[in-house]
Simulated scan of single mutants.
Amino acid sequence: MRAATNRSATPGRDIIVVNGADEEVGQDFKAAVHQGDGILHRAFSVYLFDQQSRLLLQQRSELKPLWPGYWSNSCCSHPRPGETTREAAARRLQEELGLVRIQSLSFLFKFQYHARYGESAAEHEVCSVFAAIADQPQRIDRREVAQTRYVTASLLDRQLRDRPQRYTPWLQMAWKQIRADHWPVINRMVGEAA
């Protein structure tokens, strides 16, 4: 694996490279951290639920270099240097989905994963997972998102079992943990928002 270089002299190195404990060890370019086997970097995934406990899924734009056209969680991206992961999640929810009012953006857990995409690219992330209650997307950035849809938890469970090839690997990994360990938190959040 290539070592990341520090950002100090080069603009555009805005992906935070981390060690296994999610401690920053440098910054690098977005394209660089996804080449080959990838470089371990900081990321987040947000799972937005409506007041019926349905999850908002997004289909990734065909313009995305990794997993274009795949269905994924509501929003995912990377914090910038100097930005907390929670701040980055709120920023990307506004940029991708036009959402400015989010109820209780709650941290659930963090996990590390590695997933290859084809022969020459990969995701290698320490990913913080958040959940929130939100209304319908107000404005979708078509460079990022092709379309959105709400699904029930049971329907997503079945689709991930029967058609996993349609979904991003990080969604599949995080969803199992959400369902196994964090579903009572989601139910409580939905109940409080009603």
Rank of each mutant, 00 (worst) to 15 (best):
P169N: 08
R161G: 04
A21K: 14
H41A: 09
L48K: 01
R158L: 14
A174L: 06
P68M: 07
I133T: 01
S104W: 08
V145C: 07
W175I: 01
R13V: 03
R13M: 09
Q35W: 06
F130K: 01
R179I: 09
K30P: 02
G38M: 10
L63D: 13
R60S: 03
R86A: 09
Q59I: 02
N73C: 15
G26L: 10
Y113G: 11
P169K: 11
E192V: 06
V18T: 11
H34T: 13
D14M: 05
I178C: 02
E95Y: 06
A9S: 14
P79V: 02
S77L: 07
D28P: 00
R166Y: 10
A153H: 13
L57W: 04
E62P: 05
W170D: 08
R179H: 04
W170F: 07
R163S: 14
Q177H: 13
A3H: 10
R188M: 06
E87I: 03
V151K: 07
R139H: 11
D135H: 10
I16H: 03
Q147Y: 01
Q138W: 06
L156H: 02
R92M: 11
E24F: 02
T5F: 02
Y150A: 12
R60Q: 03
D157V: 01
N6Q: 08
G69P: 00
S128Y: 06
I15C: 12
Y70R: 11
G82R: 07
D50M: 14
A174I: 05
P169C: 13
V25I: 15
S74L: 06
G38H: 09
T148S: 12
W67G: 02
Q159N: 07
L156V: 01
H41Y: 09
A31T: 11
R188D: 15
G26Q: 09
D141L: 14
E23G: 05
T10K: 08
K176P: 01
F107S: 07
R161F: 15
D50T: 00
Y47T: 00
D162P: 00
Q147V: 12
T5L: 11
P11E: 04
Q147N: 06
Q27G: 06
Y150S: 08
F107D: 09
R143N: 14
H124G: 07
D50K: 06
Q136F: 07
A89G: 01
N73H: 15
G26M: 10
D14L: 05
S120M: 03
L99S: 01
R91A: 06
A121R: 12
P68V: 03
Q138I: 11
F107Q: 11
S74A: 06
Y47L: 03
W183P: 00
H34Q: 14
H182W: 10
P65V: 08
T84W: 05
D50E: 13
G36K: 10
L48Y: 02
A115I: 12
S8V: 09
S77M: 04
Q136T: 03
Q147K: 10
H124K: 14
Q103E: 12
L63K: 10
Y113Q: 08
N73R: 11
V33Q: 04
L171P: 00
S154I: 11
E96S: 08
K64T: 05
Y47A: 09
Y113D: 08
R2F: 10
V126I: 15
C127L: 02
Y167E: 02
H34N: 15
P65A: 04
T168W: 07
E123H: 11
G118N: 14
Q58G: 05
A43I: 00
L160P: 00
